[in-house]
Structures are given as C-alpha cells and as structure tokens.
Amino acid sequence: MSVARFWRKIPQRYNLIGTRCESCGRHYFPPRSFCPDCRRGGKIVEYRFPGTGKVVTHTVIRAASEQFENTTPYVLAIIQLDEGPRLTSQVVAKPEDVAVGTRVRSVFRRIMADGESGVIHYGTKFVPVKSEK
C-alpha cells in the first residue's frame, strides 16, 4: 500500500472514525458523507467508535499473502461494532478463544510493514473482552 493511500485513512485505521446521521441515528464505518436512508434530509456528523462489539464470524488464516506471511496463524473475523456497522479485522487471541458471539474491544497494533526499510502500517485489531483481568 502506498504511503499516501495508507495515510489518507489514518483516522479510520487508528481511531475508528466514522460518521453518524443525526436525523435517523444510523452509524457508518467507514464514514459516509451522505445517509442512504435520509438522503438530503440527513445530518451527518463525525463519530468515533469506542471499538466495542462482538464476533459475527471468524477463521484462522494459515496461508497468508506476502506481507502477513510471518504472522500466521492469525484469527480473522467479521466484527459487529455495538452501534451496528461491521468490519473485517484480526482478533489477537488463541483460535480456541474466539467463537461466534465473543465480545471484543479494540487495540492498537502493527498491521504490516512495507519490508525492512518501508513504512510501518499501524491500525486497529481486537481482543476478546473475557480475557481481561
């Protein structure tokens, strides 16, 4: 991923910045500047998702693409944030600790790096909440 392309979405990647339509209450991640339900009647404002949610479905990636090769096996999941939107992310946990419905919260982790000399891409992953002390 080019430096500009990664940088452009830093607010979404680091801080789960999306939007919310104040007219109908619907939340959007990634952000939408136009509410498909309310259309011109909608009032869109920025919304930062606190990052709590649950696992909708999951898998364990054992054969990854190049940039992720050295971190396998890892848990990939579709997570539903409490406000409604879904996203795809990794869950940092042992595979046996992740199931459909597991509650999760967001953490800040390294996603990938552009080789040994390129830019490091940071972003948001999730951890199960039950493993909290």
């Binding site: 050295n70 971190t71 940092v92 953490v107 800040f108 982790r109 390294r110 996603i111 490091i120 940071y122």
Partner: peptide, 16 residues
C-alpha cells in the same frame, strides 16, 4: 511483545 507489537503500539496503549 506479541508479533504485532512494538514500542509505538505499547506507547499508544499506555497513553490510551
């Protein structure tokens, strides 16, 4: 550290 942790991720978690 985990495979995807480094000084920056640790600093962010502590600050948060």
């Amino acid at each position: 550290p985990d495979l995807d942790e480094d000084t920056a991720t640790i600093a962010v978690e502590a600050a948060r």
